[in-house]
Lab assay of single mutants.
Amino acid sequence: SLEELLKLARHALRHGEEIHVLDRVITDEHEIKRLIEELERLI
C-alpha cells in the first residue's frame, strides 16, 4: 500500500538506507525525500 511505502521511505531516510521501489533501488537521500513528498500528496 502507499502507506506502507511511505513508512519504508521515511525509515530509509532516517537510517540512511536504500529503498527498493518498483524494481528500482533508490539510494540518494534527495530522491527518497522526493518519493516521500509524492506519496504524501497521493495519500
Results as ranks from 00 to 15, higher is better:
I36F: 02
E38M: 14
L8I: 10
R14F: 15
D28G: 15
K33G: 07
H15G: 05
K33W: 11
L6T: 01
R14T: 15
L6F: 02
L39E: 00
V25W: 10
R41M: 09
V21M: 12
L39M: 03
H20Y: 09
E18S: 14
D28I: 06
E31N: 06
H15W: 11
L2F: 08
R41Q: 09
I36S: 01
E3G: 06
E17M: 14
R10K: 13
L5D: 01
E18H: 13
D28P: 02
T27G: 08
I26P: 02
K7S: 09
S1Y: 14
S1L: 11
R14P: 01
I43W: 05
K7V: 09
R10D: 04
E29I: 14
H11T: 07
R41G: 06
L13D: 02
E17Y: 14
L39A: 01
L22Y: 11
E3T: 09
L13I: 08
L22Q: 12
E31P: 02
L39G: 00
L22A: 13
I32F: 04
R41D: 06
H11R: 10
L8D: 05
L6M: 04
S1F: 14
I26L: 12
I26T: 03
L39C: 03
L42C: 04
I19H: 01
E18N: 10
E3I: 12
E38Y: 15
E37Q: 13
E31H: 06
D23Q: 06
T27I: 10
E3R: 10
H30C: 07
E18F: 09
I19C: 02
A9C: 05
L35D: 00
L22I: 08
K7Q: 11
L39P: 00
E18D: 09
A12K: 04
L5R: 04
E31R: 05
H20G: 05
A12Y: 02
L22H: 13
H15R: 09
E29Q: 14
E4Q: 12
E31A: 10
S1P: 10
S1N: 13
I43V: 07
A9Q: 01
A12T: 01
V25A: 06
L13T: 02
L5A: 04
L22C: 06
E31T: 08
K33V: 12
E37G: 10
D23F: 03
T27F: 09
E3M: 11
E40L: 09
R14L: 14
D28E: 12
H11P: 00
L13P: 00
E29D: 07
K33L: 14
I26D: 01
I43P: 01
L2T: 04
E17T: 15
R24D: 04
R24M: 10
L39F: 03
E38S: 11
D28S: 13
K33Q: 11
I19K: 01
V21G: 04
I36W: 01
H15Y: 15
E31I: 07
V25M: 07
L2Q: 03
R34S: 12
I43A: 03
G16P: 03
K7R: 13
H15K: 09
S1H: 13
L6W: 03
R14V: 13
I32N: 00
L35H: 03
A12M: 03
E31Q: 10
R34H: 11
H30N: 14
E40I: 10
K33P: 01
R41F: 09
I32S: 01
I19V: 13
R24Q: 08
V21P: 01
I19F: 12
H30S: 13
E17Q: 13
R34V: 11
H11E: 11
A12I: 02
L39Y: 03
D28T: 12
S1I: 11
D23A: 04
K33M: 15
D28N: 11
G16V: 03
E17W: 10
H30E: 13
V21S: 04
E17N: 11
H15N: 13
R34D: 10
R10I: 14
V21W: 15
L42N: 04
E18K: 12
E17L: 15
K33D: 04
D23T: 04
K7I: 10
L42G: 03
E4D: 11
I36Y: 01
R14N: 12
G16W: 04
R10Q: 13
A9E: 00
I26Q: 01
K7H: 08
H30G: 14
E18L: 07
D23W: 03
H15F: 12
L6P: 00
G16T: 04
E17V: 14
L6E: 00
A12C: 04
L6Y: 02
R34L: 14
L22R: 11
I43Q: 03
I32M: 07
